[in-house]
Nucleic acid binder design. Structure first.
Lengths: 122, 122
DNA sequence: TGGCTTTTTGGCTATATTGCCAAATATATA
DNA sequence: TATATATTTGGCAATATAGCCAAAAAGCCA
């Protein structure tokens, strides 16, 4: 992998990593529904304000959200709503794997880890 | 956030987190181009075999890839190619932010961190 | 100014991730 | 059976992430 390519992969991965946390995923969906300030999000998420603030800063650093001060609060909104389209594909992945799991159970009963050589010593 | 919702966000975030690493992103693209075994990927990535193997295991655990043994090797391929569609949106995010950065420079010169109260003591 | 409210930052601990090496495992082949 | 090849696992050290509390910032209003 050449350096230039590696940098590109890093930039892309950084955005996915920023999205890869349940609270941040919740925030992304929520601020798409309507602009929200830290306070509101904190109440919805049910964590410390500082925790939510840091999650927002991760999202902002990744360029996923835009913040705008209005009145006494800072409102966050989604930069590129196309990221919401990821979800249907993610659900496909989850569903596909749920089905795979079902198949294993149907064919072979409760799936069990295969015996390894080490097991023979037990 | 109720428990049931939280579980769903965790499941989704887990998939994004699995994708959120440069090497794994590379692997995802590469095995879409053509099935690859660990050996081949190791050479392309330029890391230890065990490192690549663990990355593949993260992807497999997230249900993103399917492995199939054929001959002496194990070939990996993409489970749900729709994940590749994420990239164009990710590029939009990157481009949007590059432009934002340009605007700041054009308007206001080289952007500088604003002075904080703490700076006054220096 | 002094006291609110809203948000961010610093600092800390706990936990998770990454990447390497060495070793184990699995399988094919001489 | 012994050896070689392909892959995974265990263990370790370095680094990163998450979440809380306390405190700092920043701005509003009496």
């Amino acid at each position: 992998m050449e350096q230039k390519l590696a940098t590109q992969y890093e930039a892309r991965a950084n955005i996915l990593k920023a999205m890869g946390h349940p609270t941040r995923l919740f925030i992304i969906e929520e601020i798409n529904r309507a602009e929200r300030c830290v306070n509101e999000l904190t109440e919805m998420v049910g964590a410390d304000v500082s925790t939510v603030s840091k999650h927002l800063s991760v999202l902002k650093n990744a360029g996923l959200v835009i913040d705008e001060k209005r009145g006494t609060s800072i409102y966050y909104r989604l930069c590129c709503p196309c990221v919401l389209d990821f979800i249907s594909c993610i659900e496909t992945v989850l569903k596909t794997n749920a089905e795979k799991q079902m198949d294993i159970v149907q064919c072979c009963g409760i799936p069990v880890a295969p015996r390894t050589r080490a097991d023979s010593n037990k």
